[in-house]
Simulated scan of single mutants.
Amino acid sequence: MSQPPAPGAAAPRLIPFMYELVVAGTRLPLLVRGQRIVAHGLDLIPASGRLVIAGGNHTTNMDPFIIAQVLPKGRRVQFMAKKELFKGPIGWLISGGGSFPVDRSKNDLGAIRGALRVLQAEGTLGIFPEGRRGGQELQGGTALLALKGKAPIVPVMLSLKGRTWTARFGAPIAPAGSVKELTERLGAAFEELGT
């Protein structure tokens, strides 16, 4: 876990055309349902440089796509996602869009290295610190990746009321202190955004 990625190792592949195709394609379910997205705090997201986008609540399969749809132009987020999603044509599509698999049943060193490579390439890593949909407790992995990758964390909370999705982004949290301290600061930011 403490070993950084090998110098020159490539970040998980992101094909810009595929990324845009995935983002555009996931607008369709929203249109069919008559839903829209409202985003707050987009001005808090740094325009460039390595960044972790951390979702404070993960309740639907649409959550990563909602975040991707509202990010400022030039910010393409690469999500760490459960390995079960990477089977068949859907897996090919989301892989081309930059997402990469994680085996949640173990400490997946390959996924950790992939996440650090995204950050070392000055990319945007997307992660849900609870580790799964409907999780109740923040895990320390997000803080660990931010500290090792020297990347600020931008927290985001999602909600759906009626036909309106709301994405609330918070101010970047500097990658400083211990894993526990950074996880606690992230949790406090989620609480503030959720009120």
Rank of each mutant, 00 (worst) to 15 (best):
L42P: 05
A146H: 07
L44A: 15
L93C: 13
I153D: 09
G170P: 01
E84G: 01
P72C: 08
A68R: 01
Y19S: 06
A10N: 08
V22C: 15
A68N: 14
V102A: 03
P64N: 13
L14G: 00
T26D: 04
G135P: 01
F128Q: 05
D108V: 05
G162V: 08
A9M: 14
L147N: 03
Y19P: 05
R75M: 13
F169R: 10
V179H: 02
D63P: 01
L31H: 11
F86M: 06
I90P: 04
R76A: 10
L93A: 03
P172S: 13
I153H: 05
S178D: 11
L145Q: 10
A81G: 13
Q136E: 13
G25K: 06
E181R: 10
L125W: 03
R33G: 13
D108H: 15
F100V: 04
L193Y: 03
E192K: 12
L109N: 15
A68E: 09
T59I: 07
V32R: 13
D103W: 07
G96P: 01
R168M: 11
I66V: 05
T142R: 04
V156F: 03
T166G: 11
L85M: 15
L182A: 00
G135R: 04
L71K: 04
A9H: 07
G34C: 02
R185S: 15
K83R: 15
T124K: 08
F17D: 11
L30V: 06
I66S: 03
A9N: 09
D108G: 15
K148D: 04
L28P: 00
S178E: 07
G123R: 01
K106T: 06
F169M: 13
L160H: 04
G56D: 02
I153G: 06
G170K: 01
L125Y: 02
R104Q: 14
P152D: 11
K73M: 12
S159K: 09
V156Y: 10
F79E: 04
G141R: 10
I173N: 06
F128Y: 15
L14M: 14
A47W: 07
T60Q: 12
P5C: 06
S99V: 03
L116I: 06
G177M: 14
V77L: 07
L160V: 00
G162I: 03
L144H: 09
G88T: 03
A146W: 07
K87T: 02
E192P: 08
L193I: 03
G140V: 11
G194M: 08
V118E: 14
I173M: 02
I66R: 05
A176M: 14
G97T: 08
A81V: 00
R117Q: 15
E130G: 02
L21G: 05
I45L: 12
E137M: 10
H58Y: 10
A151H: 06
E191D: 14
G97R: 01
I45M: 11
L42S: 12
R33H: 09
A176N: 01
E20Y: 15
P29W: 14
V32S: 06
G110Q: 00
L119E: 07
R50P: 00
E184P: 05
R168S: 14
S2Q: 08
L193C: 07
